[in-house]
Amino acid sequence: MAKLVIPSEEYAEQIAAYKAAFLEKEEVLHGTSFLSEADSIKQWIVDVHKYRKKETVPAGYAPAGTWLLIRESDHQLLGITNLRFELTNEFLKQYGGHIGYSIHPDERGKGYGAKILELTLKKAKENHLDRVLVNCDDSNLASASVIEANNGKLENKIIDSNNELIRRYWITL
C-alpha cells in the first residue's frame, strides 16, 4: 500500500509539486520540517538530514526525523510526516508535540492520514519513545478522527500562540 521513505533527490520533483499544491490552496504544510520556507528542495533535503541527529540539528531545534509517505504501486508522494525525538522546549511541550503530518490535497479521504500516523508511531517506538503528543486544530475533525483511530487520548484543548483552539492528544506506544 504505502511506506515511509527518507527524503531524497529521487523525489525532488514530487516534493516541489507537493509544496506547490499546498501553497496554491493557501494551506499550512504541517509536518514538513519548514518545507514552505525552503528556498530549494535540494537544500530542504540536506536540512532534514541535519535535523536527524542532536549533533547536527540547528541550535534551538529538536532532533527529528522526516519521512515521505510513498504509494508502493506507483511511487507517488502521498504525504509527509515529522517525528520529534524529544520535546526540547515549552512551546513543543504545549503546542508542537512529537508528530506532525500532512496529506496531499488530492489524496485526502482515502485512509492515508491514518496510515501515515500509524507508520510514524512505529518510527516513534523504534526510537524508544513510550508515548507521544499529537496536536491538531479543534476544527480539523478529520485529523482528530485519525488521531483517535490510532489510540489518541484527548488530554485537553488549549489556545495556541495564534489564538486558535487546539486539541492535545497522547498516544501510548
Score class of each variant (00 low, 15 high):
Q76K: 14
A2L: 04
K125E: 15
K19E: 00
K54Y: 08
I158M: 06
V46E: 15
L121G: 05
A12C: 10
T172N: 12
G79P: 07
S73K: 11
K93R: 15
I166T: 09
Y169F: 12
I147Y: 08
K115D: 12
K50H: 13
L141R: 12
Y101R: 03
E126W: 05
L23H: 08
L23K: 10
T172C: 09
A64T: 00
L117G: 02
I6S: 13
G60R: 00
D74H: 01
H98G: 01
R108Q: 14
D74W: 06
D106N: 13
L35F: 06
L35A: 01
D39C: 09
A114G: 13
L121V: 06
A12F: 07
A124W: 03
D130H: 14
L87G: 08
A62C: 10
S161K: 11
A21H: 02
V48S: 11
S40Q: 10
D130W: 13
N151C: 11
N140D: 12
S139N: 14
I15T: 04
L23C: 02
G96L: 00
E27H: 11
K19S: 06
S8E: 07
K19L: 01
E164P: 02
R71E: 11
A2R: 02
N127A: 06
K93H: 14
Q76T: 13
D137V: 03
F34S: 12
D47P: 05
N151S: 15
K25F: 02
N162L: 11
E107M: 15
L77M: 04
